[in-house]
């Protein structure tokens, strides 16, 4: 009699804990989307101007939605990559270096092979994806074969990446001016630039991987119970390495979209992606210890972060408050998504 398994109560209630946790991020997003127009209304009301809530909102408009999406797409790709890793219960902090290297190599290859998508320069795109995959693969190999904790291995790989990008550029920026490539940003279908559609397609691919492939299933199995995955005959190490490789590919896509958005590839292209992507994944409700969450959570998380960034400026709040608000959100997200009774040690 050392252990007695508790029987779970029949879950007939509508507002179960799991349900609340599952939908909280989306509710937060909706709340934020309605909150910022309220501040706008308040401002105009104070100034005695006519203002119909939402209808007259500058924030709550298609054009601003497009702006938020443009800002969000590169971060979304990077965050999706790291989502897979976090589902496995590991973490990948190599994104800043990987993004920089992919962006820089892409730009060099693109310029070197003709400088326009209409020439052989389009090959620079698969090359960048391969570079991302290779960096992720090495990352996974270092983590698994040398048995270095993933956060340390990937952090180190990130530094290697940043150094490599610096070595390649010597600190310079490379401009990618091709109109065809920049149409990612400049050409709009139904109010949204092409890069948003590219990101949407990648999101669907990620969703397919997550829900419809053995690889995706294995991520959850490893994250939910590594022992068990092992005891079910899975090659856990192989799953891990493939996970890091896949993440590298998504980082590369993020790099391409970042270059598409700014038209510049440089060592600094990867800056801030670590904070934004990890924050987004956590705020979206993917648990840091693995097994729970997915790419839709990440989409919601990325949108929350970007809506805050955009909304704060739109309502004219000082910039330093943004980071503070984001920090509080991260803590809230972890508090809400953790059943802290079941976690005995917090390390």
């Amino acid at each position: 009699m050392t252990d007695i398994t508790a029987q779970s109560a029949p879950g007939a209630r509508f507002l179960t804990r799991e349900r609340i946790i599952k939908w909280t991020p989306l509710l937060v997003l909706v709340f934020l989307v309605l909150l910022f127009p309220f501040f706008e209304w308040l401002e105009d009301f104070g100034a005695g101007k006519e203002h119909m809530y939402l209808a007259d909102s500058r924030f709550f408009s298609i054009r601003n939605a497009a702006r938020i999406f443009i800002a969000a797409t590169p971060a979304l790709m990077v965050a999706i990559g790291v989502t897979f890793i976090i589902i496995m219960g590991s973490i990948d902090l190599s994104m800043e270096g990987t993004v920089s290297v992919c962006a820089v190599i892409f730009a060099f290859a693109f310029i070197g092979w003709g400088g326009t998508l209409a020439s052989w320069a389009w090959l620079a795109i698969p090359v960048a994806l391969l570079v991302g995959a290779a960096l992720g693969f090495i990352n996974g190999l270092v983590h698994v074969r040398l048995k270095i904790p993933s956060f340390m291995a990937s952090l180190a790989m990130g530094f290697v990446g940043t150094g490599l990008a610096l070595l390649l550029t010597g600190g310079d920026r490379i401009r990618v001016e091709d109109e065809l490539f920049r149409s990612l940003l400049t050409v709009r279908w139904f109010n949204f630039p092409i890069m948003v559609y590219v990101a949407a397609v990648m999101l669907l691919i990620a969703w397919f991987i997550q829900s419809r492939t053995t690889l995706g299933r294995n991520f959850y199995a490893v994250g939910g119970g590594e022992e068990l995955a092992h005891a079910s005959g899975l090659n856990v190490n192989r799953v891990r390495i493939m996970g890091f490789t896949l993440a590298g590919v998504f980082f590369a896509v993020g790099a391409l979209l970042a270059v598409g958005r700014i038209g510049i590839a440089e060592t600094a292209t990867g800056n801030n992606f670590m904070f934004v992507s990890i924050t987004s994944v956590v705020v979206g409700g993917t648990a840091l210890w693995g097994g729970i969450g997915g790419v839709w959570n990440t989409l919601v998380g990325v949108l929350i972060v970007n809506v805050i960034n955009n909304g704060m400026v739109v309502i004219g709040l000082p910039n330093f408050l943004q980071d503070g608000v984001l920090g509080i959100l991260v803590i809230l997200a972890v508090v809400l998504s953790t059943d802290r009774k079941s976690v005995s040690f917090v390390k």
């Binding site: 959850y220 994250g223 068990l228 097994g291």
Partner: peptide, 9 residues
């Protein structure tokens, strides 16, 4: 809980 089923799946 550890080696039998994956909670969350």
């Amino acid at each position: 809980k550890i080696e039998g089923i994956v909670a969350g799946m």
